[in-house]
Amino acid sequence: MKKIILLTLLLSTSMFSQNFTGKATYKTHRKVDLKVNSGKGAPNSDIQEKLHAQLMKHFQKTYTLNFNKSASTYKQNEELSSPQVQTDGIQIQIGGSGAGTDILYKNIADKKYINKTEISGKRFLIKDKLENLNWKMTGETKNIGNYTCYKATRTRKETRSSVAMTDGKTEEKKEEITIETVAWYTPEIPISNGPEQFWGLPGLILEVQDGKQTIVCTEIVLNPSEKIEIKEPTKGKKVTQAKFDKIIEDHTIDMMERFKNRRKSKDGNSFHIEIQG
Rank of each mutant, 00 (worst) to 15 (best):
Q18N: 10
Q18V: 10
Q18Y: 10
T21N: 11
T21C: 11
K23L: 12
K23A: 07
A24R: 00
T25F: 03
Y26S: 09
Y26A: 09
T28V: 08
K31N: 15
D33A: 15
D33S: 14
D33G: 12
L34Y: 11
L34T: 07
L34C: 12
K35P: 02
K35Y: 06
V36I: 15
V36K: 02
V36A: 06
N37D: 15
N37P: 03
S38E: 10
S38G: 06
S38I: 02
K40I: 10
G41M: 14
A42L: 00
A42G: 01
N44Y: 08
D46Y: 14
D46G: 10
Q48D: 07
Q48T: 11
E49F: 07
L51M: 10
L51V: 05
L51Q: 00
H52G: 03
Q54T: 06
Q54R: 13
L55R: 04
L55N: 03
L55V: 06
K57N: 13
H58G: 00
H58T: 02
F59I: 08
T62K: 02
Y63P: 05
Y63C: 04
Y63M: 12
T64P: 02
T64A: 11
T64S: 13
T64F: 07
L65C: 05
F67A: 00
N68P: 04
K69A: 14
S70A: 15
A71K: 03
A71D: 04
S72M: 02
T73S: 00
Y74S: 00
Q76K: 11
E79W: 05
E79I: 03
L80F: 10
L80G: 08
S81A: 13
P83D: 05
Q86K: 11
T87C: 12
D88V: 08
I90W: 05
I90Y: 00
Q91R: 15
Q91P: 02
I92L: 14
I94C: 08
G96C: 08
G96F: 07
S97R: 05
G98A: 13
G98M: 11
A99P: 09
A99Q: 12
G100H: 09
T101Y: 04
D102W: 01
I103T: 11
L104E: 02
Y105S: 01
N107E: 04
I108M: 01
